[in-house]
Write a protein that binds this DNA or RNA. Structure first.
Lengths: 192, 192
DNA sequence: TCTATTTCTTAATACACCTTAAGATTAATG
DNA sequence: CATTAATCTTAAGGTGTATTAAGAAATAGA
């Protein structure tokens, strides 16, 4: 199954597409290959594409004034990763998006997507739901990080994203959780 | 200027509306009056309305397992306050929405709004932008709360929301910032 | 205006999490 | 392989923020 097949079967988990629509969709996305550590989106640039991970692993992270990185989101096969803020508002991204493994991404430009909405209305529905879910996930995370201890957040992360925990370095998980790698290491020791 | 005029002039900051459209919009929203402390939305219920504050002040807050309250959002005249999560997905709300002053709210039911989208297309545009902004604000807050100290967050809050700081109790600002009222009090003393 | 309630402050003590520094593992690369 | 680079752990000491308890100040209700 090639990258575009993966995208189509992903879309078809949510919406129905005729054969003709599938081929229009197929032609609307372009495939990009990233090496490990390669950056797909730089903070400061406007994010003009929606991005689907067909294979590999990405992270979105924010860099603060002291040049410290804060991981906002991980993504693996079947996920969408982006600085949605930037994409939706056409303002400079606040986040970087970077490959943590050799990664294959399917991208669609905002203009192409807007045309696609006209040609394949189900796609508009798909993205509306996608944006809603993104909001929900972000809200969960905000509430979570404000009302739970680092230990609770780590245990939740582990049960929710076991597959991610196994393939990204621990210090990045610490960054995602908002703690230092040293403290995560101590937590893990305590939990065992 | 009555509540519905306020709504209309608010909408017209973003979109254009003919006289006929304005009267359709006017008929689609219903006016609710809340006493201080009255709860407009209970966690556990599904939020079925979009809510515009014509006058007064609301807060949206989350209650954790230990019954501690975490304020997610304040709102005053001209703001929209809701548990968007619940509204968008028709799932039980995780947040309460409560009046902090005698408040006038204009509400529109999801079903009515969907009809209104058909009758007045500009309204759909208005809400799409609204949802985008909500996402942006939430993302800013998440990044902020993870990468800044309580003091920095407080100073930012003060410069950004001076009008809100002046009308809500300090312990609620503490809750919004994710700190205890005692610590906020200490911060304020230190800053002066 | 008086009283009750709500809100804010102070201060002592405690804990979660950070910083720094060093060394131990593990993984990547020539 | 050998070497370097990346990642993880340990430990000592420090800081930010919480907790508890009490009282002071402000506000609202009778």
């Amino acid at each position: 199954m090639d990258a575009k097949d993966k995208l189509l079967s992903h879309l078809r988990e949510t919406i129905k597409l005729t054969n003709e629509e599938q081929s229009i969709v197929r032609d609307s996305y372009s495939e990009t290959h990233l090496k490990k550590k390669e950056v797909l989106l730089f903070a400061g640039d406007v994010s003009n594409h929606m991005r689907f991970i067909a294979k590999g692993c990405l992270r979105a992270y924010h860099m603060d004034e002291e040049a410290k990185e804060h991981i906002v989101q991980f993504g693996i096969e079947g996920w969408w990763v982006n600085d949605l803020y930037s994409y939706l508002t056409c303002t400079p991204a606040k986040q970087f998006v970077q490959a943590l493994e050799p990664t294959t991404v399917l991208q669609i430009h905002r203009d192409t997507l807007n045309e696609l909405y006209e040609k394949v209305p189900a796609i508009e529905r798909f993205y509306r739901l996608k944006f809603e879910k993104a909001y929900v996930a972000l809200q969960d995370r905000t509430i979570n990080s404000m009302s739970k201890s680092a230990e609770e957040r780590y245990l939740e992360f582990r049960s929710k994203y076991r597959s991610i925990e196994q393939r990204v370095p621990q210090y990045m998980i610490a960054s995602y959780l908002g703690i230092t790698p040293e403290f995560l290491s101590a937590l893990r020791k305590k939990i065992k």
